[in-house]
Amino acid sequence: MENEKNHIIPYRTFLYVLALLITLTITSVAITQIYLGTLTVVLALLIAAVKSSFVLRIFMHLKFENKIFSIAVVAIALLISVVILITFLDYLYR
């Protein structure tokens, strides 16, 4: 069975991504210690989103898989965001 394209990611790549992820974690801890109001929430979630995109694309190989997987993951993220948006429209304007 020729199932695999056998894309081998070098060890180095993973270590670079790890360094980046740890840096982003420390950055988000540092940022949230400063009081920035609503901006804190936005920044913390933005950093979380960047971190998860690296985990998804490199660790979970999405970058090297069929595009349909990435599309599905984005669709689920959008679905959750839209439901949150609609829920808040309800709570804010009822």
Binding site: V29, T32, V41, A44, A48, M60
Partner: peptide
Amino acid sequence: ENSGLYWHLVDLIWIFLFPLFYLIT
């Protein structure tokens, strides 16, 4: 690979749990 995917998902969830419960105060 599949066990890796599962483990990464657990990591992914924590990436969001951590700021939401610990950081955004």
